[in-house]
Write a protein that binds this DNA or RNA. Sequence first.
DNA 1: CTTAGTGCAAAAGCTTTGCATTTAC
DNA 2: GTAAATGCAAAGCTTTTGCACTAAG
Lengths: 125, 125
Amino acid sequence: MTPQRLSVLDIVAARTGHIGADEVWNLAKEQHPYVDLATIYRTLQLLKRVGVVTEVIIGNKLHFELADQHNRHNHMVCSTCDGVQTLSPDYLAEFSQRLEQEFGFTPDLDNITIGGLCSSCQPPG
Amino acid sequence: MTPQRLSVLDIVAARTGHIGADEVWNLAKEQHPYVDLATIYRTLQLLKRVGVVTEVIIGNKLHFELADQHNRHNHMVCSTCDGVQTLSPDYLAEFSQRLEQEFGFTPDLDNITIGGLCSSCQPPG
DNA sequence: CTTAGTGCAAAAGCTTTGCATTTAC
DNA sequence: GTAAATGCAAAGCTTTTGCACTAAG
């Protein structure tokens, strides 16, 4: 456990919700000016491997979140404002069961992200 | 309409299902050895813009498919074998309605892709 | 002829890797 | 003291862009 790693963990933990690697980097530099992006990525991979953080792809970029087994969720990402809302996996339960029963396909629920338009960005009319 | 563009269209049309830009390129080179990847991308963008092809992201890579309004579908991608199955959007209808009603979030149904394990790749036991 | 498309090369953006040096334990 | 982690630099991969040249209509 190095100070750089602790920093990364702190930063991800401090954030409610997901955070991009570049954002982690910027914040980490406040405490460790010479920390490298590669270290950030390596640390995030490590934290993911040991199950401390979760990785989601948002807008073709990796984002990370503190893993919380008691608060699993999916994401709804607005394509206009890039806002992200969380969604209980309960909403996907029935759908997921159908895929399993009818196709024998086991969906990876943790990696389902729904794109679309949030309530604030609905087109007029 | 140039021969390069026709090639790209032919290639996408010949394929049942999606195809990556790099694959289109490889096939296009058989007929036009000097065709450039940039031309492939530009043509695919064009075809997408005019509604002839559809773009989906599979495994962080753009894939393209002949657009078929009468056969809209979503994709299930197996993370083990990379196999892709199509899925009628009917399976998502109820889920989608709930998001709309409860959150005012309008999901982009055309861009929902489900990752997971297909029936052939289920873990033993 | 004049606009649009192509090939080539280079760059952008995100992520990963090699390697020598430094650090943790 | 030894194995692991870091910083730095470079490369990888997909996709995009600039630009002079070519070809289409």
